[in-house]
Simulated scan of single mutants.
Amino acid sequence: MIPWGGVTCCLSAAALYLLGRSSGRDADILKNVTRVNQLKELAQLLELDSSKLLPFIVAVSGRVGSDSPIKCEHSGIRGVIVEETAEQHFLKHNETGSWVQDSALMLSMSKEVPWFLDDGTSRVNVVGARGATGFALTVGSEVFEESGRSLVRGTLDYLQGLKMLGVKRIERVLPTGMPLTIVGEAVKDDIGDFRIQKPDKGPFYVSPKSLDQLISNLGKWSRWYKYASMGLTVFGVFLITKHVIDHVLERRRRRELQKRVLDAAAKRSEPESEGSDGARENVQDSTKKEGAVPDLCVICLEREYNAVFVSCGHMCCCTACSSQLSSCPLCRRRIDQVVKTYRH
């Protein structure tokens, strides 16, 4: 039987190790990106890097801005990216007949306008921030609108097994003026404007944290993943080793019990005039030819075994001896139940 517990631990350890390597590699990459202290320096840096074929990865910081920001309907916050969702909350009958709360998405809407980062010295446009690592919108407003108490509507919903509670509306927004740090590819478009975008190959981060904080967090996660990987590896190897040792010991106990049964069968079948050694050899020879072991209880060696142990499934004892046991003689597992068997 395959030790699935140990195998699962080892596979999980391998996955965590790969995550740790990935986080550590990202931290090393962020350490080597070009830091732009002031956005007005970006033009000069691009000119110096124009001869290189590789994407020019930079880290810039500034505050979110836009020439045409969006005004949120419920909160009134001005932002450059706005997402609005509406969920219908209701009670419904489950299989047992009781009421359980559930929800269903009614509306999911997203808006975005051209936006940029501004640090007071210059500005740089940002493209494709939604696909960046670390990008998250803040909750601008969260409103719950209760459903109306119409008698007709309530009766129809009740007949369908529903009780409408109301609609929950959530606005998430990237507000103007919010400080951000962006790591990405810096390019200059045809009209001379600078923008930060996702590189074909390389890191792309959009986060309210500073670059040093991003590097520190990635380093911490990398170490945590590696420590967890080591722990799971040790535990998985322990489980596999324990399974192998238990299997070897079980086979040894099985051979010893079979030898006891063969000896007992030889003693029972030996003629009074013959020695026990010859009879035992005859029984053993016949057993080898038939490929079976006498059906004797391994404890008393007198009665035939007729009891199955739950949950290991071994059958090697009679019911009389089984009532005195707490663990299986073969595998040493705890006996939860003894089931008597019958033969035709």
Rank of each mutant, 00 (worst) to 15 (best):
E272W: 15
Q337T: 05
S286M: 15
T319I: 14
E83I: 11
L218Y: 10
D157F: 07
S322R: 06
I29S: 05
A129M: 11
L30D: 02
N125V: 00
I29W: 11
W4I: 10
G79N: 02
G291S: 09
R169N: 09
R63G: 04
S23N: 13
V339C: 03
G184P: 01
R35W: 08
G184M: 04
M315C: 06
V124Y: 01
D295G: 02
V100E: 10
C318V: 07
R130W: 12
G62F: 02
V293D: 08
R153P: 00
M106T: 02
Q44M: 07
K288Q: 12
K198W: 07
D295W: 13
V293H: 07
T121D: 02
R268P: 00
N125Y: 08
G154W: 04
L91D: 08
V283W: 14
E250F: 03
N94D: 10
L174Y: 00
V139I: 07
H344A: 06
E270V: 15
E95A: 11
R251H: 01
E73P: 00
K340V: 08
T138I: 11
G291V: 05
F238N: 03
V60L: 09
L214H: 07
P175V: 04
T133Y: 14
R78S: 14
E84K: 15
E47I: 11
G177H: 05
S22V: 06
V60E: 09
K31H: 05
V206P: 00
C318A: 04
Y158C: 05
D190F: 11
D26S: 13
G65P: 00
L39G: 00
V113N: 02
G79F: 03
N125M: 06
E73R: 09
S103V: 09
A132K: 07
C9N: 12
F194I: 13
E274C: 12
E272N: 07
M230F: 10
Y342I: 10
E142K: 13
S141W: 04
E302K: 15
C331F: 03
K267R: 15
C318Y: 09
E41M: 13
F116G: 00
A27H: 04
V248E: 09
R35M: 05
D285T: 14
R153C: 00
A307H: 01
T341E: 05
T341S: 04
F194D: 03
T341Q: 10
P55V: 15
P55T: 14
S122Y: 03
F309R: 00
L30R: 06
L117H: 05
D28E: 14
L301M: 13
G161W: 12
L156E: 01
R169C: 08
L262H: 07
K168Y: 13
H243D: 05
E270F: 12
G5W: 05
G275C: 04
